[in-house]
Simulated assay, not measured.
Amino acid sequence: MNLPDNALVLPLIMAVSGLPVLVAAVLVARGNLRLINGLDAARLRDPAAAAARFARLLALVAISMFLAALGFYWAHGDYNRILVVTVLLLVSVNGLAVTMLIALSRLKRDYRAPRDDPRTGRR
């Protein structure tokens, strides 16, 4: 069995590391908002919209990682191309992370007060 060429190792690592993010996007899309910093879906006004927003952002992170894998394959050992792909990956993933943090802070700000929570029984 032949080991993969050195030029294929980095693209394979990027493609494989994008799979858990894609799985997280699917789980969040199915309503598992607790995966996003312990969000309590019962305290949100519209949990379906929040789940769709975060699932879309996580899917975009996975897509950018898969595109980076293609970019690293295209670079094929050329250091200038690898640098361009790396910078684009850093900008896209970190930009999406900032977008997720902003969306999370907006959701947490709009949390219903615990006294209005029907599970506590207080008003």
Rank of each mutant, 00 (worst) to 15 (best):
A48M: 00
M1S: 14
D46N: 15
W74H: 12
R56N: 08
T99F: 04
R106G: 14
N80E: 14
A29T: 00
L96A: 02
P11Y: 11
L101S: 12
T99Y: 07
I102W: 08
L70Q: 07
L10D: 05
L107A: 02
L39K: 05
L44N: 07
N80Y: 13
R45C: 03
A25S: 12
P20V: 00
A41T: 02
I82V: 14
I36K: 06
A42Q: 11
L67C: 12
D110T: 03
R56T: 10
A103E: 10
P47F: 01
A103Q: 09
A75W: 07
F66C: 02
N6L: 13
P11G: 11
L83H: 14
N32C: 02
L58M: 08
A69H: 04
I63G: 08
P118Y: 06
L3W: 13
G77C: 04
R34A: 06
P114S: 00
L27Q: 15
V28P: 08
L104R: 14
L39S: 06
L58E: 01
V16L: 15
L3D: 07
A69I: 03
L90I: 11
L60K: 08
M1V: 12
N80S: 13
D78E: 09
T99K: 13
M1K: 13
L33H: 04
L35V: 03
H76Y: 12
R81L: 15
Y73H: 13
L35E: 01
A68D: 05
A69G: 10
V28M: 08
N2M: 11
L88Q: 12
A50F: 03
V61K: 12
G31K: 02
L27I: 03
R53K: 15
F54C: 02
L39Q: 04
